[in-house]
Amino acid sequence: MVLLTTENDDGSPNLAPMSSAWALGQTIVLGLGKDGQTGHNLSRRPELVVNVPGPHLWRQVERLAGVTGRHPVPETKPAGCRYVADKFGEAGLTPRASEAVRPPRVAECGLQFEARAARVQPDSAKDFLIVEAEVLKVHADPAIVVPGTDHVEPGAWEPLIYNFRHYFGLSEELGFSYRSQTPR
């Protein structure tokens, strides 16, 4: 699970949760809905921040799950999705200035990757957007970095995991998404 920050047409930030992300070297590959504000923003302004939350932020992430920065709300969004302009405020998260890109970082996230989208294109079925982002700058909480290196200590870092619409750390389940079809 990651939180993406991008820049809206008016210069304000957009903040969006997404669960389709993986990294290979200095490239992060993202899978986005084609009709959302994040895809709209990246097709016009390629700068973004990939913020990696820890499990303690699952409720803040879930507050973003049912909102969009796109107005009017696209018909392709799930029922009940509503427009919110200030998504940082909606989630109770803090924007922090980036160093290499315009969109802000999420202060509460232990890992943040400032990046530039090198490629934004539809998937083969044209249902989603595939984004290849080049990492320009990495920020890591010093508490999770191996002393004297630029490496994250795996035992000190626990990312938020989104597993079939349920939130987990690296251990027990923390809660579930409003879209879950298997709530407890």
Score class of each variant (00 low, 15 high):
residue 21 A to I: 00
residue 25 G to P: 04
residue 27 T to K: 04
residue 28 I to E: 03
residue 29 V to T: 07
residue 30 L to Y: 04
residue 31 G to H: 05
residue 32 L to F: 03
residue 33 G to P: 02
residue 34 K to T: 00
residue 35 D to K: 11
residue 36 G to M: 15
residue 37 Q to W: 00
residue 38 T to M: 05
residue 38 T to C: 00
residue 40 H to D: 11
residue 41 N to P: 08
residue 42 L to R: 01
residue 42 L to P: 01
residue 43 S to T: 01
residue 44 R to L: 14
residue 46 P to Y: 15
residue 46 P to T: 00
residue 47 E to Q: 12
residue 49 V to F: 03
residue 49 V to D: 02
residue 50 V to S: 02
residue 50 V to Q: 05
residue 51 N to K: 04
residue 51 N to A: 06
residue 52 V to S: 11
residue 53 P to K: 06
residue 55 P to Q: 08
residue 55 P to Y: 02
residue 56 H to P: 11
residue 56 H to I: 02
residue 58 W to R: 02
residue 58 W to G: 09
residue 58 W to E: 05
residue 59 R to K: 09
residue 61 V to F: 11
residue 61 V to P: 03
residue 61 V to I: 04
residue 62 E to F: 13
residue 64 L to C: 06
residue 64 L to A: 13
residue 65 A to I: 11
residue 66 G to T: 12
residue 67 V to A: 13
residue 68 T to Q: 14
residue 69 G to Y: 05
residue 69 G to H: 03
residue 69 G to A: 12
residue 70 R to T: 14
residue 71 H to V: 12
residue 71 H to S: 13
residue 72 P to I: 13
residue 73 V to Q: 11
residue 73 V to F: 00
residue 77 K to I: 14
residue 77 K to F: 10
residue 78 P to Y: 00
residue 78 P to A: 10
residue 78 P to D: 06
residue 79 A to W: 05
residue 79 A to Q: 11
residue 80 G to C: 05
residue 80 G to R: 05
residue 82 R to V: 06
residue 83 Y to K: 15
residue 83 Y to L: 09
residue 83 Y to G: 11
residue 84 V to D: 06
residue 88 F to C: 10
residue 88 F to L: 13
residue 88 F to P: 04
residue 90 E to R: 10
residue 91 A to L: 08
residue 92 G to P: 10
residue 92 G to H: 08
residue 92 G to M: 09
residue 93 L to Q: 04
residue 94 T to W: 00
residue 94 T to L: 03
residue 96 R to L: 15
residue 97 A to C: 06
residue 97 A to T: 14
residue 99 E to M: 03
residue 99 E to V: 04
residue 99 E to R: 04
residue 100 A to H: 01
residue 103 P to D: 03
residue 104 P to Y: 04
residue 104 P to G: 10
residue 105 R to K: 14
residue 105 R to D: 07
residue 105 R to Q: 10
residue 106 V to A: 08
residue 107 A to S: 15
residue 107 A to M: 13
residue 107 A to H: 13
residue 110 G to Q: 08
residue 110 G to P: 02
residue 111 L to M: 15
residue 112 Q to N: 11
residue 113 F to V: 04
residue 114 E to K: 02
